[in-house]
Structure formats: C-alpha cells, structure tokens
Measured scan of single mutants.
Amino acid sequence: KRLCLVCGDIASGYHYGVASCEACKAFFKRTIQGNIEYSCPATNECEITKRRRKSCQACRFMKCLKVGMLKEGVRLD
C-alpha cells in the first residue's frame, strides 16, 4: 500500500502530483483555494504524522510543498 508523503497515512491515490491521503489532499486544496497563510508558533520544523498532522498547519502546508504538491494543480473555480 502506498503511504501519504505528507503524513504517512494510507494514500488514496496521487493528488496534485504526490501520493497522498484524502485529509492532506483536502487540506492542500482548502489552503490554496482560500489563499490561507499559516504561521508556525514554533520553529517551522514540527513533525507531521497522521496523529499530529492537525497540530501545525504551517508545517503541514510546508511539507505538502516540500514533497512536491503542485499549487498549479488546484482549480480556483
């Protein structure tokens, strides 16, 4: 089984260019469509796991980008 490159949960397929789970796919889409900017309360190096993926949105979004999710893949309509 493929794992989500962002949080390590089971991937539902390839989304925005990267093997990812439904939760991270939806999080990435919401962030881009809403043009949301997050800031990390710590040092921008929070560990993102299935259990902790909700704890820091800034680091989760940075990890989405780091593993290769493409903003261009999100439709803005």
Rank of each mutant, 00 (worst) to 15 (best):
K1Q: 05
K1C: 04
K1W: 05
L3N: 15
L3P: 05
C4G: 02
C4Y: 04
V6G: 01
C7I: 00
D9K: 07
D9M: 07
D9T: 12
D9I: 05
I10N: 05
I10P: 13
I10L: 09
A11Q: 07
S12M: 09
S12T: 09
S12P: 08
G13Q: 07
G13A: 02
G13R: 02
G13C: 00
G13M: 03
G13N: 05
Y14T: 09
Y14H: 11
H15N: 09
H15C: 04
H15R: 06
H15V: 05
Y16N: 10
Y16W: 10
Y16S: 06
G17V: 05
V18H: 07
V18Y: 02
V18C: 08
V18W: 02
A19Y: 07
S20H: 08
C21V: 01
E22T: 08
A23S: 12
A23D: 13
C24N: 00
C24A: 00
K25Y: 15
K25N: 15
A26I: 06
A26V: 14
A26D: 13
A26N: 04
F27Q: 00
F27G: 02
F28I: 02
R30G: 12
T31C: 05
I32E: 08
I32A: 07
I32Y: 00
I32Q: 05
G34D: 14
G34P: 00
G34F: 14
N35Y: 08
I36V: 12
I36M: 10
E37Y: 02
E37I: 06
Y38T: 03
Y38N: 00
S39V: 15
S39Y: 15
C40M: 02
C40I: 04
P41L: 09
P41F: 07
P41V: 14
A42Q: 08
A42M: 11
T43R: 13
T43K: 15
N44A: 10
E45A: 08
C46Q: 01
C46N: 02
E47D: 13
E47Y: 08
T49R: 08
K50M: 14
R51F: 08
R53D: 12
S55Y: 15
C56T: 02
Q57C: 08
Q57I: 03
A58T: 04
C59W: 02
C59F: 04
R60H: 15
F61C: 00
C64H: 00
C64V: 01
C64Q: 00
K66W: 03
V67D: 02
V67W: 02
G68A: 01
L70W: 11
K71L: 08
E72D: 12
G73E: 14
G73I: 04
G73D: 14
V74G: 10
V74I: 11
V74T: 09
R75K: 13
L76V: 13
